[in-house]
Design a protein around this nucleic acid. Structure first.
Ligand SMILES: [Mn+2]
Ligand SMILES: [Mn+2]
Ligand SMILES: [Zn+2]
Ligand SMILES: [Zn+2]
Lengths: 135, 135
DNA sequence: TTTTAAATGCAACAATGTTGCGTTAATATT
DNA sequence: AATATTAACGCAACATTGTTGCATTTAAAA
């Protein structure tokens, strides 16, 4: 009765499927964060469009991948490379205006001072401009 | 031949209209950032849905208001209260998970160190959690 | 192998954002 | 004040994105 994966919020057992594995591989091996539509195009007929939404939600809730909100409002998905499993996702993301790639900068963690009467649960720091490849 | 307002990117003359004035007032007097749909509801029959999109774009391009991308990908609009006109918009935004309000924290400006081979043009820092009213 | 319920496909729907075009009206010019 | 210019508008039509319900399939525990 070994459980392979769980939704860390609801402590509900989840399952591994072919589509889930393929999408996770895609995200893991990508050098930039991917949106739903990008994944949809890259996977062709792997599975239904709705299934991709559900798989992405599942992977996020399992804390395997994380969401990044791009400056135009599009949501992208990436996999952290650091080891810690349950994590506050407090690093910077860079959104290149030319090649349109969004990348995690896991070693850039901004510091800020916020009044004590706020409780911070999550963080989304995005810088945009030109990446090294496009500069 | 005094020009009232211009698109600062294209240096093109823009015009003031009743709908534009009303929407700017709404945003100026709001204590939190507003989305297109919120503005649409608040203005009732002021103008067409499409016109609101175009007015918001115009106000952003005139550098009168600014966009804030919320953690769920929804885009909100706010007006800075500081004086400087053309500005890098580098302050933090706070997104409350309970009351769902998004507010500018103009005096919170994070510091970060990014490699020199990146060129930063814009910044979007959003914190989410509980605001003082909801804590 | 059997059981169970998570995951899927599909259809239908809702929300959000975009484009083209004929008309209206803000503003500069006369 | 009248006129000319063209930005802004309304409307319809469309595209994209995300959601929900339900019957069927299938991963994985028993
Ligand atoms: Mn990241
Ligand atoms: Mn702001
Ligand atoms: Zn680039
Ligand atoms: Zn609140």
């Amino acid at each position: 009765m070994q459980q392979c994966c769980v939704n860390i919020l609801h402590m509900k057992v989840t399952r591994n499927t072919a589509a889930k594995g393929a999408i996770l591989d895609l995200i893991t091996n990508s050098d930039s964060a991917l949106s739903h539509s990008e994944i949809h195009k890259l996977t062709a007929d792997l599975c239904d469009r709705v299934t991709i939404y559900r798989i992405l939600d599942r992977l996020v809730n399992e804390d395997v991948i994380h969401k990044i909100v791009n400056l135009d409002g599009t949501i992208k998905y990436a996999k952290c490379h650091h080891a810690n499993h349950v994590h506050i996702h407090n690093h910077v993301h860079f959104s290149c205006e030319k090649c349109l790639k969004v990348t995690c900068m896991e070693n850039v963690q901004p510091s800020y001072i916020i009044p004590r009467n706020y409780k911070v649960n999550d963080v989304n720091f995005t810088l945009s401009g030109l990446c090294p490849n496009c500069l």
